[in-house]
Design a binder for these strands. Sequence first.
DNA 1: GTCCAGAAAATTGTTGACATTTTACAAAAT
DNA 2: ATTTTGTAAAATGTCAACAATTTTCTGGAC
Lengths: 227, 227
Amino acid sequence: MFSGRTLADRAFEWLEEAIIKGDYPPEAKLDEVALAKSFGISRGPVREAIRRLEGKKLVERVPHVGARVAALNPSDLADILSVREALEGMACRLATERMSDAEIKELENLLDQHADQGGLKSGANYYQNPGDYDFHFRIIQGSRNAKLIEMLCNDLYYLLRVYRYRSSSRKGRAKEAFQEHQDVVAAMKARDPDAAEAAMRTHLHHALLSIQNEQVPLPRPKRLQKA
Amino acid sequence: MFSGRTLADRAFEWLEEAIIKGDYPPEAKLDEVALAKSFGISRGPVREAIRRLEGKKLVERVPHVGARVAALNPSDLADILSVREALEGMACRLATERMSDAEIKELENLLDQHADQGGLKSGANYYQNPGDYDFHFRIIQGSRNAKLIEMLCNDLYYLLRVYRYRSSSRKGRAKEAFQEHQDVVAAMKARDPDAAEAAMRTHLHHALLSIQNEQVPLPRPKRLQKA
DNA sequence: GTCCAGAAAATTGTTGACATTTTACAAAAT
DNA sequence: ATTTTGTAAAATGTCAACAATTTTCTGGAC
């Protein structure tokens, strides 16, 4: 059923995926005996899986009471988005320095595809859809920074996903987002790390403002100066 | 002996501290029976503590073989320092927006103390000493961003500490670092988040270059433009 | 001396039983 | 009716024994 070799590892993978998928929403109780029974194993490996998730901060535990899927208060959202802005801005800088011409060209093609096959036409659908995800994902990978990749794609992924349903569906945001993507790629093509980082941060900061108050975001620092 | 209520929690705290202090260096084997015996408990809680550390990525585990303190290859160092630059730059930006005048004044006094009581005189001692640590710590706290504080003070702390002994002791770096600290505070006093973030990133980037090749770092982007 | 079984030892993985604590429920008092 | 209190039930914490795997050791063949 799963790849992990030990029962504890398999339980961990199963549980992590279930939490990320939303099968276990925030605050949901993780009942050891129920989980053990549903996995057909004993409580030992289940407890170890829960402990690992606790270390990852996906679940919170109260001694003698139990473990629950980590809760997220609204103020956490702003905190997380600032972290994402900082990390993904850095990732975009590094990607601009490290991605090959061919890779950047692929990125450009990706945007062209979105424009062609109704990405823009479908309006509000472009922003924060699989296409948007793929765009960000590729740039993060292009940073060649393992820690950055891990933090953005693994550690923050669950948190961003939990809040996704709140994300702005404001009219016109899709078009803006698409334009911002193009700005990012333009800076990368020009091999201008400062501009690329600034463009990515502007994009993400607009998303933050858009989510926070469903309003037109005010402009923010556009780029890092050369020297 | 320890605050945690359950044996597993106490074992976790003890082990985490031991790893951070360096009592268990990278690659060190974590023997379940030996640890259980030294704690006077059974293997169950010890395994749970190790699983939690695994989730925190402080230890690496190979099924049926065992757990070791996480190893750090040299390329990890550069990756981590880039992450720190991004996160602490953002922290400095937010601190500039959110710290009170009194708090910023305290920060300034802290630097004055360092200058007076031999911080500068002792030369190479100023850079990356407790004083340097306190300076960075206060700014991070000033960001009022719980995620940022957690990532910098908890998650990255061990990694940065492990590599500390490698850090540059180059002549003159101390004086430079002190000056860079003053640049940061100056920007914060002026309530210029762009300049503050840029100054902090310059400071950290110089440290990165200094560590990497023990050479005079070249200047990097100095500040974020206003609009 | 080196290499290759194969057994023995040591280590990790898993389980079921028991201990402890919390929670749920019901009866009694106000 | 509400609160309180005590008991029962359920959940978590811990342990010791057993199972499975890896590692080490030993003996022998070449």
